[in-house]
């Protein structure tokens, strides 16, 4: 699906990574590892197309992502550091907009997704009245609403309780089983039934040094 060729990125005259190449196929779970400040988030943002300040190429199904932006974005689900949930709106309002941006409307699916995440009855409560973990769950409800085959997730386990972490791991496993691909960063020891591919940015840097 996604091929990264010879990717390099500098920030403030400091090389974050260079000559980075890997590819992500269907049914693959890829974890980006590295210490704080090693460029994990920057790498994910480059892959998602949010950061274009890099050398090398990011190819989606053989074509440069910059040229096939719309097609690529159709296939991409990105979960960033920030939850992308407006705190003054309710979960229902937030998720309706998300669905609208994907080009469909489906209130029943939104309610089902919220229920699945233990937020039944919270659909019409402004998000600022909810805890950080609950807001994170609202953000994760988008996973069930998205049909994208490629998930890019930056620290998705932040603020989740034990049960939430287990549920999300199961969700990631199910996505990989069904032929999707997941790229994520986490500092938590990921439990998965699938083969975990690791790209370690620290090792990469010591190699090249």
């Amino acid at each position: 699906m996604l091929t990264v060729a010879n990717l390099g990125c500098e920030r403030d005259e400091r090389v974050l990574f260079d000559h980075l190449s890997f590819s992500v196929a269907n049914g693959m779970l890829l974890q980006i590892q590295g210490a704080n400040g090693s460029g994990k988030t920057t790498l994910l943002r480059i892959l998602a197309g949010l950061n274009s300040d890099y050398t090398g190429e990011v190819l989606w199904r053989g074509q440069n992502c910059r040229q096939t932006r719309q097609e690529y974005q159709q296939a991409l689900f990105y979960l960033g550091h920030a939850p992308a949930i407006n705190r003054t709106l309710t979960p229902l309002q937030n998720l309706r907009w998300f669905c609208g941006l994907q080009g469909f409307s489906d209130d029943a699916a939104i309610h089902a997704a919220l229920q699945q995440l233990g937020l039944a009855g919270y659909a019409d409560i402004p998000c600022h009245q909810m805890s950080a973990g609950q807001q994170r769950r609202v953000s994760l409800a988008r996973l069930s609403l998205s049909a994208a085959p490629l998930w890019i997730m930056d620290e998705p386990f932040t603020a989740l309780d034990k049960q939430g972490v287990a549920e999300l791991e199961a969700r990631v496993d199910a996505h990989v089983t069904s032929g999707g691909a997941v790229i994520l960063t986490t500092h938590h020891a990921l439990q998965t039934r699938h083969l975990l591919t690791v790209v370690n940015l620290d090792a990469l840097r010591t190699e090249s040094a």
Partner: peptide, 21 residues
């Protein structure tokens, strides 16, 4: 607020045409 909470990224990554949005 969209910038602060990440909604802006979702808007930019939407497959819908950004121009009209």
């Amino acid at each position: 607020s969209d910038f602060d909470d990440g909604s802006l990224e979702q808007l930019l990554l939407s497959p819908q045409p950004l121009y009209f949005h």
